[in-house]
Simulated scan of single mutants.
Amino acid sequence: MATDIDRSDHPVAGMIIPLVTALDPRGRPDPPAVRPLLAHLADAGVTTLMLAGTNGEGPLLTAGAVRTYAAEVSVMWRELVGASARIMVAATGTGTGETLERMERLDGLDLDAVVVLAPTYFRHTESELHAHFRAAARHGRPVVVYNSPGYTGNPIPVSVMRRLLDEPGIVGLKDSSGDAALFAEFCALTGERPGFQVAQGVERQLADGLRAGAAGLVPGVGMLAPAVCVDLLKAGRHGDHATAAALQHDVDRLAALFGVRPGASGVVVIKTALHLLGLCPPHAAAPFLPLTEAELAGLRAALARIHDLVRPHDPQPI
């Protein structure tokens, strides 16, 4: 179901949902189990999915598992949404070699772009970061650079992104740095090369990101209340910043759920919340652990506080 927010075929334009990876109790991808969530998103007017990112637990899954999931989910999504459907998959490797291997495992899939993070573990120079993304850009698919220094430890400076504008394969940037000034500088780069666009990946800065020039938004909590996030995007796109700011307050209320278990274990929180709403299984990849009884009680209480934003489709016991 396309909406007026989806006027561009660009991979990072519009509302982008960083989809969870539905897993069975043994930690294996279970694509059919995500079907209720896909229908929930499509009904709200979402057209673009990003698979195997942070919310998708991509770094914890094998390249084969990511391919299996992406292959089946992309077919389901295109059947649901039709010609306006767009799919991106993250290829996350410790270094350039592993990143390219993960990209190769996606060959043959009907994707609109591959999302590539900076290398992890070691700290790298600007020249090394440039070489890493340049190699990915020349693999043959459109590449969206993903700046997530909190996870990679390697922030991507504006100077590197400006050099990467010379690579036709680099089509966009998702920024999750949380640095508003840096984000504005990234958005300014869109005027230096046609076809290059930027998406805001920080949930608490969606409205500000649109004001700075973001083409797209990537909120994980959009899985819980996609209509809220879609309405925020519409308001910002139409210059109704007062409405966008009010809806940002609702998004902030949704993001407060992550306080149940702060940190990367927010993956477990959102999966459990989605399960309680009847949208997908709660299982997460090892070494993630299920919520404790105390955490689960806290999550139920937190969901009750935002009952006006999220509605159970088929409430599940847990």
Rank of each mutant, 00 (worst) to 15 (best):
D107G: 00
R105S: 10
W77L: 11
R67W: 13
V144Y: 02
H130T: 08
V66L: 11
A91C: 14
P59W: 11
R86Q: 10
H139L: 12
V158W: 14
G53T: 09
V115N: 01
R78H: 14
T120S: 07
L165G: 06
T68Q: 12
L129R: 01
R141S: 06
E101R: 14
V116M: 03
R123W: 06
E104T: 09
D110L: 12
G153D: 12
E101Y: 09
A71W: 14
V46G: 00
M88F: 12
L164W: 08
D107V: 07
V145A: 11
D112G: 03
E72P: 02
L49P: 08
V75L: 12
P149L: 01
A90E: 12
A118Y: 07
V171P: 09
A91G: 08
R105C: 07
D110M: 08
N55Y: 14
V160K: 01
G95W: 03
H139G: 13
R162A: 13
V114H: 04
S74H: 04
V66D: 00
G64L: 13
F122D: 00
P157N: 02
T54I: 14
T120F: 04
R138T: 11
I87G: 02
G93Q: 07
G150P: 05
M103F: 11
A63H: 12
T48Y: 08
P157Q: 03
Y69R: 07
T125K: 15
S84N: 13
E57T: 04
D112L: 12
V145F: 05
Y146I: 06
L106E: 00
E79K: 13
L165W: 10
V46E: 00
R123F: 04
R67E: 06
A70W: 10
H132V: 10
P149F: 01
G95R: 02
L129A: 12
G150E: 10
G108D: 00
P59E: 08
R86A: 05
S148I: 15
L165M: 09
T125S: 15
T96R: 10
V114I: 15
L109P: 01
P142F: 15
A52H: 08
D112M: 11
G95C: 06
L129H: 05
A65Y: 04
G56F: 05
G140R: 01
A63M: 13
G150F: 09
A85M: 07
T120Q: 04
V145G: 02
I87N: 03
L129C: 12
S74A: 15
H132E: 01
V81R: 13
A85T: 05
A85R: 01
